[in-house]
Nucleic acid binder design. Structure first.
Lengths: 191, 191
DNA sequence: CTCTTATCGTTTGGCATCAAATGATCGCCC
DNA sequence: GGGCGATCATTTGATGCCAAACGATAAGAG
């Protein structure tokens, strides 16, 4: 563990000094700033504890989880439920299929679509893994009371819901006047 | 926008059905499950609104932010403050340096270390960009009252603090008996 | 001084991730 | 039933990201 670490409180004091003159939404800044930090910390902890022996990443676990909860489902729906893009899901599900945890089958009525489901081994893994995963969820939030956990979850849901509902329009408004440089990422059109 | 989307509440009903027989920490699950979701949503919104015209990712913005708040700092400290690994910071700071936003200078007393700081252009950018960034932080959390924002931030800080304090020991305990396969990622020892 | 050990930042390998392009297939209209 | 646009999963290219290996330097022991 490296030496002198600045506490979060110290950080916020430094911010206050630096921004003393500016009007700003301090509450919003505190909330948003900590969401990403907490997400990274929790993800790292879970990947390096319960998921590590099974060589699963956070994302591949979430995909298994979605299939466990919802049963057989179409890929676009799994991607949305897991919060990843369809392209990412293609890679993840290929990996999980090669490990025998996930099965892919063609949609009976539409050959463009693909259905994903857990194999029996996948089910077995989740039945064994999920209690351990949940125990770690409990560990990371053990300093909060159940009521605080629910309030936390509720606030986060509110934010997600707001972005799902109004985010796209907001971005359109903000970027209306801009002419954006083409993104670096993404496939190039063939010449 | 794709068609029938399952609401979060529907999801949680399905979970209850699937896990009806298992004892589990539902509050913890709700909290952890939503942290990652909210973080991804917020990050995506900010990258695709205020950060997009400046071609900054979330992470590179955070690095600029840390340097803006703390001034000149050593790389390990910036990495920790930004919540990324040293290796990632190397790439980020190289990019930011090539764009003239960040300067690197050798430590006066130890030639292994490197000091990072904002260039005047970097400073100028942050003075202009931060208010817009903060306005979007306010937008994403506008459905919450200031008190709810503070409570949210506080709960998240509690989780981060707990993991910083007890996470490593917990992982050691959990993995004590396991013999882990070597990780897929990471540099290979030369033969 | 020489040797060893610790500690920097950087490099490297592998996966995750996204968005746009792409090809396959479907639905519809005439 | 032939064609045309919409919609699906996949491919592709670039970047983000981590952890371990690595080279350079510092600090300590004898």
């Amino acid at each position: 563990m490296p030496g002198p670490r600045r506490s979060i409180t110290e950080t916020e004091q430094a911010i206050r000094q630096r921004l003393g003159g500016l009007t700003l939404q301090r509450e919003a800044m505190a909330a948003v700033g900590n969401i990403h930090r907490a997400a990274a910390a929790v993800r790292s902890h879970l990947e390096n504890s319960v998921l590590r022996p099974h060589e699963l990443t956070w994302t591949s676990f979430v995909v298994l989880w979605v299939l466990w909860i919802w049963g057989e489902a179409e890929t676009w729906s799994v991607a949305e439920e897991a919060g990843i893009s369809k392209g990412t899901l293609t890679g993840i599900s290929r990996t999980l299929e090669s490990r025998g945890l996930v099965a892919r089958s063609p949609h009976p009525e539409d050959r463009r679509r693909v259905l994903l489901s857990l194999t029996p081994e996948g089910e077995k893994l989740m039945e064994e893994l999920f209690p351990a995963f949940n125990a770690e969820e409990a560990f990371v939030s053990a300093s909060l009371s159940p009521e605080e956990c629910l309030r936390l979850a509720d606030s986060l849901r509110t934010i997600v819901g707001r972005l799902e509902e109004h985010g796209e329009q907001r971005r359109r408004e903000l970027l209306a006047g801009e002419d954006l440089a083409p993104r670096r990422s993404g496939r190039r059109p063939r010449p």
